[in-house]
Design a protein around this nucleic acid. Sequence first.
DNA 1: TTATTCGTACGAAAGTTTTCCTACCTTTGG
DNA 2: CCAAAGGTAGGAAAACTTTCGTACGAATAA
Lengths: 121, 121
Amino acid sequence: MEPTKSELEILQVLWKHGPSTVRFVNDTLNEEKRAVQYSSTLKLMQIMAEKGLVTRDESSMKHVYSPAEEEGKTKKQLLDRFVDSMYNGSASSLVMQLFGGKNTSKEELEEIKRLLDKLDQ
Amino acid sequence: MEPTKSELEILQVLWKHGPSTVRFVNDTLNEEKRAVQYSSTLKLMQIMAEKGLVTRDESSMKHVYSPAEEEGKTKKQLLDRFVDSMYNGSASSLVMQLFGGKNTSKEELEEIKRLLDKLDQ
DNA sequence: TTATTCGTACGAAAGTTTTCCTACCTTTGG
DNA sequence: CCAAAGGTAGGAAAACTTTCGTACGAATAA
């Protein structure tokens, strides 16, 4: 299923830091993103567990939540959806949009091409 | 302001076909996307006019709606936001995600590199 | 032991987005 | 002229997302 905006923020924390408690996720969100109450984060993570976006280990009193899907898999899925809805499925259109502006340096373009070369082998 | 998902669908129709009536947009959505009532599309487009996402010409009885912003400008904005929230602002991460999978052909990669070369000049 | 702290669960409510019913006006075809 | 078709406006409601107060049990420290 599709994570919402807030759910995605929580997933990012889990992907970055590994299996975590609600307390940890909430603290991280408050540091890195925005003020939010513990009970709000808890609620959201409970909903995510119901939806199957995360799993949770209830063996200890402090439940430990883990992402249900790999970061790459979920992100690729969201990216593909984005490309479909915005660029009619054309990845190269997206790339042009991304680098077509004036604010892309020669160096950055070279870097990208180098990365693409690696893929090519 | 940020278009919502449905609003974006409407903008896409307007960008693709130029200034249009509600009737035309609604028909197009029903053909290309999903079943939706005329009055729903109307309402949405009225809201978009209020928000300033579209302008409308009321001189005729059939109001004609136009996108307020250029397609490229809006899309670049949304794309940048996407890169920020998903890839921590790293465009090359996104590109890797996009082409990193097994399902990218050599030809497609070459095509992309050719396009990047053009930008480089 | 007992008060405090920390955890979960639940429900309500607020905010946002989407949908559509209905009233009412204008245009059009017969 | 009159009925039918097609247009806008507005409000209500449904659906979805987000927030948080509160109850209550478990752990902890004094």
